[in-house]
Amino acid sequence: DEIHIHFNGVTIEFRGLTEEAKKALEEAIKRGASEEELKELARRLIK
């Protein structure tokens, strides 16, 4: 299970995320999180 985020022309790929983690990332994107914020969020979620 993986998710691809297209962000300002950059694709960020995450693997092994739970549904909750995906929802958290989607919410962050909707509120306009920066690419760095998304990566940091993903790091926290994957652990």
Rank of each mutant, 00 (worst) to 15 (best):
I12L: 11
K22N: 03
R44T: 12
K30S: 11
I12K: 01
D1V: 15
I3K: 03
F14A: 03
L25F: 11
G16T: 06
G9D: 06
H4M: 10
E35S: 08
G32W: 01
E20C: 05
E37A: 04
A21L: 05
E2N: 10
R15L: 13
T11V: 12
L45W: 07
G32D: 02
K47R: 05
F7S: 05
A42Q: 03
K30P: 00
I3Y: 13
I29L: 07
E27D: 14
L45H: 01
K39E: 08
L25S: 00
L38T: 00
E13N: 05
H4Q: 10
L25T: 00
S34H: 03
A28D: 00
I46M: 11
E36V: 06
K30M: 10
K47T: 15
H6A: 09
E37C: 02
E13I: 15
A21W: 09
K47H: 15
A42Y: 15
E27A: 11
L25E: 00
F14L: 09
I5R: 01
I12T: 07
G16W: 07
F7L: 12
G16N: 10
V10T: 12
E2P: 11
E20P: 05
A28M: 04
E20Y: 12
L17A: 06
R31L: 10
E13K: 15
L45K: 00
L17G: 06
E19C: 05
K47Y: 15
S34P: 04
A24W: 05
E2F: 15
A28H: 03
S34W: 02
N8G: 11
G16V: 05
G16F: 09
K39W: 15
A33Q: 02
L25M: 07
K23R: 11
E13V: 15
E2Y: 14
T11W: 11
G32V: 01
N8C: 05
R43T: 13
A21H: 14
L17Y: 05
E13M: 11
L38N: 00
R31N: 13
L17H: 02
G9L: 02
A42I: 15
K30C: 04
K22G: 03
L41K: 00
K39Y: 15
T18L: 04
H4S: 10
K22L: 12
E19S: 12
E19R: 10
E26Y: 13
E27W: 09
K39L: 15
E40R: 04
L45R: 00
I46A: 02
K23P: 02
L45S: 01
R31I: 05
T11L: 13
E19M: 12
A33L: 07
E27L: 09
S34F: 02
R43N: 12
K30D: 10
S34I: 01
E36T: 08
K30T: 10
I5P: 03
K22R: 13
F7N: 04
E27F: 08
H4R: 13
